[in-house]
Simulated scan of single mutants.
Amino acid sequence: MRRRRIQDDDLHNKERWLISYADFITLLFAFFVVMYSVSSVNEGKYKVLSETLTGVFNAPQRSLQPIEVGQNPPAAGIGSGEDVIQPAVTEAPRNPDMDEAGRTEALRTMADRLALEFDELINQGVVTVESNEAWLELSLRNSLLFGSGDAEPHYDAFEVIETIASVLENRDNAIRVEGFTDNQPIQTNAFPSNWELSAARAAAVVRMMSMEGIDPARMAAVGYGEHQPVARNDTEEGRRRNRRVVLLISRDASIRGALR
């Protein structure tokens, strides 16, 4: 009996290492979970920050001319005794060889390409493409680009904008980006009302389009808030449809002319 008890104690002592090993594995797993959570990066924010910093550091140096304050400040280039360089007036690129019929056909071609690129999302009701002889309208649900109550694009938005830019690049058509919300009130430090939220979302899309190579002179950003609904706001589906960003692509090149 004494010998058997000694053997049982020896067996128990030999298996104690399993407890320490299990504790070690648990701690190691917890360590890697914490490290992963700390190292995960919002890639959408990273891309915006990266593009912004690249633009800042690559921008040419500029000097500011002081403005003389007084009753009768001298007019630029008059009586100053120095040659004053007038700022150049830039316009969107033109296609002088294309007549009105050609522009209409080119607009239809862009509509067909966008419909093909977003075929799956169109079937899901997230994207709509409509066109006539003068305008092409591309409507995107806000959930495709932004989080709730936010104007900062999430990562999936960049792929969508890249696809749109690939269709609109190397052209001169004017582009008006319009932001819309539902009628649910918002009041934050960044967005006191839906006006600011819708305008900020439209401006964010314009900025992303510019980052993808679309000439900023072709674009304008407009915010309508909740005041131009396409559906009733008393249902969740209606509010979801009203939360959208719309790109209106004009047949013409002049953005100011397209807005009139």
Rank of each mutant, 00 (worst) to 15 (best):
M1D: 14
R2C: 05
I6M: 06
I6R: 07
D8Q: 15
D9N: 12
L11V: 14
N13C: 11
F24P: 00
F24D: 11
F24I: 10
I25V: 04
L28K: 11
F29Q: 11
F31M: 10
V33C: 15
M35T: 07
V38Y: 07
S40R: 14
N42S: 04
K47A: 10
V48R: 05
L49F: 09
P60I: 04
R62V: 15
S63K: 15
L64C: 03
L64G: 03
V69P: 01
N72V: 11
P73L: 13
A75K: 05
A75Y: 08
A76G: 03
G77R: 02
S80D: 09
E82W: 00
V89L: 12
P93K: 09
R94Y: 01
P96S: 01
P96Q: 00
P96V: 03
D97P: 01
G102P: 06
T104H: 13
T104K: 13
A106C: 05
A106E: 12
A106R: 06
T109S: 05
T109K: 03
L114W: 04
A115W: 01
F118G: 02
D119K: 04
D119L: 03
D119S: 06
D119T: 02
D119C: 00
E120S: 06
L121W: 08
N123Q: 14
Q124H: 10
Q124D: 14
G125C: 05
V127T: 06
V127W: 01
T128C: 04
T128Q: 02
V129C: 12
V129Y: 13
E130S: 09
L136V: 01
L138H: 04
L138S: 02
L140A: 02
L144V: 11
L144G: 08
G147Q: 15
G147E: 15
G149K: 05
A151M: 00
E152A: 07
E152P: 00
Y155N: 11
A157I: 01
I161F: 00
T163H: 13
I164Y: 08
I164G: 03
A165H: 00
S166I: 10
V167S: 12
L168G: 06
D172W: 14
D172S: 15
N173H: 15
A174V: 04
R176L: 07
R176M: 06
F180D: 09
Q187P: 06
A190W: 04
P192Y: 05
W195D: 14
E196L: 14
S198T: 14
R201P: 02
A202F: 03
A203R: 04
A204G: 07
M209C: 03
M209G: 03
S210D: 02
S210E: 05
A217Q: 06
R218V: 05
R218Q: 08
M219T: 04
M219D: 06
G225T: 03
E226W: 10
H227K: 14
P229G: 08
P229C: 09
A231M: 08
N233A: 13
T235L: 11
T235C: 11
R243G: 15
R243P: 11
L248Y: 00
I249R: 08
S250G: 07
S250M: 05
S250N: 07
A253L: 04
S254Q: 07
I255L: 06
G257A: 02
A258Y: 08
L259T: 11
R260F: 12
R260Q: 13
